[in-house]
Design a protein around this nucleic acid. Structure first.
Lengths: 128, 128
DNA sequence: CGGCATCCGTCGCGATACTG
DNA sequence: CAGTATCGCGACGGATGCCG
């Protein structure tokens, strides 16, 4: 077997997976998106309700986050022409499937965050 | 049943899940971490090798990313006192378990990115 | 080869104020 | 109640250079 260039050992399939995964994380890895999705998991909710439930998010960021989710087809926005205005947000089918894929990651977090904590302390202790 | 404050309908368990998930995403949601982990999935690798395989990452960012992963106990660093220096990086057991939890998310991405694309175009078209 | 320090541009996000 | 506009800061990350 001839091996002229043994530099790259990543198989293309894995590389492709990785690129898509990176794109997804880029999209949902921001500060608020998953919080909003989490709240909407409980069912449709109004703007102010979401804001209260999350706690700490600003008016502006909730607007932007919801716009992004709506644009990607993960959230459906329904505005009622009443006074005062009323707008409902709810997850689309695609939005709901997204959360299920995050469950393993959340479980991993719960299972490992203490170990990570300890690893950090051990590491930091070396350069005290 | 008395409901004095019907504001929050999130059950605490889910809220807890969400907080941890947010922390995890905060940690691995940066620009390079998962790329590095992906490369190391193929086995131990040297600094320069990782850099070549990822492509586009700067010297500095690879250093910082590896430091972070090492600190969290996700990557093990092994330095050999040779000239020139040689340093091997490899995933720890915890690091390997992490990737498996990301598989569903990657699959979701591959299954849905076209739908997301279309949703975006539809959305953008409304405000042409 | 691998690591660290410095400089600097970009941009995410918060604060605030105004509209329908 | 919901959305938009403007300003400003701070963190992130790229470029570069020096060191063991």
């Amino acid at each position: 077997m001839k091996r002229t260039k043994p530099t790259s050992t990543i198989d293309p399939t894995r590389a492709e997976h990785c690129r898509v995964l990176g794109a997804v994380l880029d999209r949902i890895g921001d500060k608020w998106t998953i919080m909003v999705v989490a709240v909407l998991t409980n069912g449709p909710a109004r703007f102010t309700t979401i804001m209260r439930e999350i706690g700490g998010i600003t008016h502006r960021m909730l607007t932007l986050t919801l716009r992004g989710l709506e644009r990607d087809g993960l959230v459906k926005r329904t505005a009622y022409a009443t006074v005062p205005p009323r707008v409902d947000y709810e997850l689309t089918e695609m939005g709901r499937t997204l959360i299920t894929t995050l469950v393993p990651l959340a479980q991993w977090g719960e299972a490992n965050w203490q170990a990570i904590r300890r690893a950090q302390e051990r590491h930091d202790a070396q350069f005290a």
